[in-house]
């Protein structure tokens, strides 16, 4: 039961990448061109404007294919956020997909009964240092050489990437979306 719930929500973007039948609702975070391909050098197929409700229909690398009004095209993954509504968390309208986890019968409770501790604030406050667990943690750790071998074996290559500057914005949240500021 728990498993099924977990998978259904986790599968949202997986389904996206497989050009799914169900679109996931999203919100445009900025004014942006909709490109005909997942590349900023491709032709422009339309536009979306900040705050617009969109449907996310596919994902490819750092790009999402969206339907915005009558237009459809590709935007950068961070130009849209998944989920409906203005506050960025809950959405009732995707309940069929991701909302399964919001059912009253909270699965974490069930698990708690089965012996797995939850991680609420009280649990953390009452936590007692575990020397045995620290010893296990140490035993699982890998050396620099092992990590390097792991990367080499799998073809992971380092590349130079410049640090991202802190965005200049007057508003703490930057976008005006979301609450709690």
């Amino acid at each position: 039961m728990t498993r099924k719930i977990g998978v259904s929500a986790a599968a949202v973007l997986l389904m996206l990448s497989a050009s799914l039948a169900h679109a996931v609702p999203g919100l445009a975070l900025k004014d942006e061109s909709l490109y005909s391909k997942p590349s900023a050098t491709s032709s422009v197929a339309g536009k979306m404007s900040k705050g617009m409700a969109v449907d996310i229909v596919a994902k490819q690398g750092g790009w999402l294919q969206v339907k915005a009004g009558k237009s459809q095209g590709w935007v950068r993954l961070l130009s849209v956020r998944a989920g409906a509504g203005g506050s960025g968390g809950g959405l009732d309208d995707v309940a069929g997909v991701a909302g399964a986890v919001t059912q009253k019968s909270d699965p974490s409770r069930v698990v708690a009964v089965a012996g797995v501790r939850g991680l609420n604030e009280e649990d953390l406050k009452g936590a007692k240092y575990s020397a045995e667990e620290i010893a296990r943690l140490d035993a699982y750790s890998v050396t620099r050489a092992q990590a390097t071998a792991f990367a080499e074996k799998s073809g992971l290559k380092t590349q130079n990437v410049a640090a991202l500057p802190k965005p200049q914005s007057s508003q703490p949240s930057g976008s005006g979306w979301g609450e709690g500021y």
Partner: peptide
């Protein structure tokens, strides 16, 4: 993005 699709009250 996936977290944004989850109910914040979960």
């Amino acid at each position: 993005q996936e977290m944004a699709t989850l109910n914040a009250n979960d």
